[in-house]
């Protein structure tokens, strides 16, 4: 506990929620994975979701960009709003939603294409640029924002799968940024990386916070404490406790939270 208490967490700002989930329940077939989850995500902050394996963190994250729609037999109940608009309303185009709410996955998953084509993938399918120059511009700035440009600018045509794990993950972040999202969902983005690559990604996430709202699932309590302003603790499909990161880690209200962050169960 001592170790977690003395890390400095950025100031919490009082901001309005950009995403707001009310009474969200998710079923895979007959199996209920989430039960009446309520959570507000503040804009331009980093919110971390923690909790033991199988408690529904990924499931919740995938509700926010309707990736669950691609899972056969998955049903979402409740209400999730983005900027006040219900994202599950029938008139919402989930494809546009996913462009606004980008996602970075646990395992780096660059396409087996060149670095350039990986980043240009989103802008191309959405027709975000008018000509090659503009596309070049978007690709370069995205790589720059993801902190990868310096390492790859001489080999933009090399294949993306040939990069190191940490570089691949930053490529995936660049790929998400190129679609110009407002919100980025990250599902354990560092779990396949070594400590140095992890530190780079954490640095990057903190920089991105200025312009994006970030929601990150992590199994590392230190990581949650280091980078996030708000933390939600999931347990068996429910949110047990949610609050300012510093408060939650130093002074949890619920016994189960206390137990989890001190490593008594997991």
């Amino acid at each position: 506990m001592q170790m977690l208490a003395d890390v400095t967490t950025p100031e919490i700002e009082d901001v309005e929620a950009i995403i707001s989930a009310k009474d969200v329940s998710v079923f895979y077939g007959d199996k209920q994975a989430l039960n009446n989850v309520n959570l507000d995500i503040p804009a331009n902050q980093i919110t971390s979701l923690i909790g033991p394996s199988g408690c529904g963190k990924s499931t919740f994250l995938r509700c926010l960009n309707r990736m669950n729609d691609t899972v056969f037999g998955c049903r979402v109940e409740g209400n999730i709003t983005l900027d006040g608009q219900d994202i599950y309303a029938p008139e919402v185009d989930e494809v546009l939603l996913r462009a606004r709410v980008g996602m970075v996955f646990q395992k780096p998953n660059p396409f087996p294409k060149s670095i350039y084509d990986n980043v240009a993938y989103g802008p191309r399918i959405h027709g975000l640029t008018r000509d090659k120059d503009e596309l070049d511009e978007v690709v370069l700035t995205s790589l720059e924002k993801a902190g990868l440009l310096k390492e790859v600018k001489d080999r933009l045509n090399a294949t993306g799968t040939g990069l190191s794990g940490g570089q691949q993950q930053r490529l995936c972040i660049a790929r998400a940024l190129a679609v110009q999202p407002d919100i980025i969902l990250m599902d354990e983005p560092c779990s396949a990386l070594d400590p140095i690559a992890t530190a780079r990604i954490e640095e990057l996430i903190e920089e991105l916070r200025e312009n994006y709202t970030i929601i990150i699932v992590t199994h590392s309590m230190q990581q949650a404490a280091r980078i996030s302003q708000k933390t939600a603790f999931f347990h068996m499909g429910e949110i047990v406790e949610v609050g300012d990161t510093e408060q939650l880690f130093t002074n949890p209200r619920d016994d189960r939270t206390q137990g989890y962050i001190t490593g008594r169960f997991g």
Partner: peptide, 24 residues
């Protein structure tokens, strides 16, 4: 994971098939 990556960027199913799955 490649399909997820493509859907996550807002590609439709047919775009995913044509641009990611078939090339791979």
């Amino acid at each position: 994971s490649l399909r997820d990556g493509s859907y996550g960027l807002g590609a439709t199913r047919s775009e995913t098939v044509m641009k990611v799955i078939l090339p791979a």
